[in-house]
């Protein structure tokens, strides 16, 4: 069976500056992977490359075995973007309107959401603990509730892969706990492959199955207990990265 995500020898730059160099990464079915690294380390860029939102300088990304630029089965992928940059709270839209948008790719133009779609929306809302809130205006909800609306939107198409970019930003510690409990449930009970981006190593590391540490290059990749060693964290956060990774070979 094909891996869910394959990244091969990936390079990316914004203009002159190299943002990602020689990234090799494989995400297998059922993985729960956290992409970690300091701010500006290229995590979000990598996510956007995986989702085909950016084009690599060189190298290849495959989703479910298919090169991402030719991938068409987008209903198999759910995406929760960084909330702050993607959402205007003054936009009048109800929870139901936003969540059902997650099914539009499958539905095709000219067709209105039907009974199946409405049921899927209600189920996704139940799953994230927002059952019965469909009529509420998204802009009037709390930050944690809004985050769950966007997760519901990503889930409503019944994806096999869910990609979340800094999903925990702005959540208090209690909301954070229930949020990670939800992710665990999606991964364990529903078999959804998860990739989540985080810049903090604390909470996330205890919850996920694998971590990939990124700072322009892939610094380490594996189970949290093996990978998050003092030496690796120092390389990830502490010491100027340019010097340390010079000439360093990544072995996935």
């Amino acid at each position: 069976m094909n891996p869910v995500v394959e990244v091969r020898d990936l390079f990316f730059s914004y203009g002159e500056e190299m943002v990602l160099e020689q990234i090799d990464l494989t995400v297998a079915r059922g993985d729960f992977l956290a992409l970690m690294g300091p701010n500006g380390s290229g995590k979000t860029t990598l996510v956007k490359l995986i989702l085909g939102l950016l084009k690599p300088l060189s190298g290849e990304v495959r989703l479910f075995g298919c090169p991402v630029d030719r991938f068409r089965q987008w209903y198999r992928v759910g995406y929760v973007p960084q909330k702050a940059t993607s959402f205007d709270t003054r936009f009048p839209a109800t929870v139901e309107e936003v969540v059902s948008a997650g099914r539009y790719g499958r539905l095709g133009p000219g067709r209105r959401p039907g009974k199946d779609d409405r049921r899927a929306v209600e189920e996704a809302l139940e799953l994230v603990g927002l059952g019965g809130a469909g009529h509420r205006t998204v802009g009037n909800l709390s930050g944690g509730q809004q985050q769950r609306v966007f997760i519901a939107r990503a889930l409503v198409g019944q994806p096999e892969l869910l990609v979340l970019d800094e999903p925990a930003v702005g959540l208090d510690s209690r909301a954070l706990e229930s949020f990670y409990a939800l992710l665990e449930r999606l991964n364990r009970d529903m078999g959804i492959t998860l990739i989540t981006v985080s810049h903090d190593t604390g909470t996330v590391a205890r919850r996920v199955g694998k971590v990939a540490c990124i700072n322009r290059r892939l610094i380490c990749h594996g189970a949290p207990s093996q990978v998050l060693t003092t030496a690796n964290l120092a390389r990830l956060y502490g010491i100027p990265v340019r010097r340390v990774v010079h000439g360093h070979q990544t072995t996935p």
């Binding site: 085909g52 068409r72 987008w74 973007p81 993607s86 309107e97 948008a101 539009y104 209105r112």
Partner: peptide
């Protein structure tokens, strides 16, 4: 009318609309 829901999604969140395959 034909593209109403697609245009709504793009207005609300262009990037996510892209990932949904629109």
């Amino acid at each position: 009318a034909f593209f109403y829901k697609e245009l709504f999604f793009i207005a609300f969140d262009e990037e996510c609309a892209r990932v949904t395959g629109l």
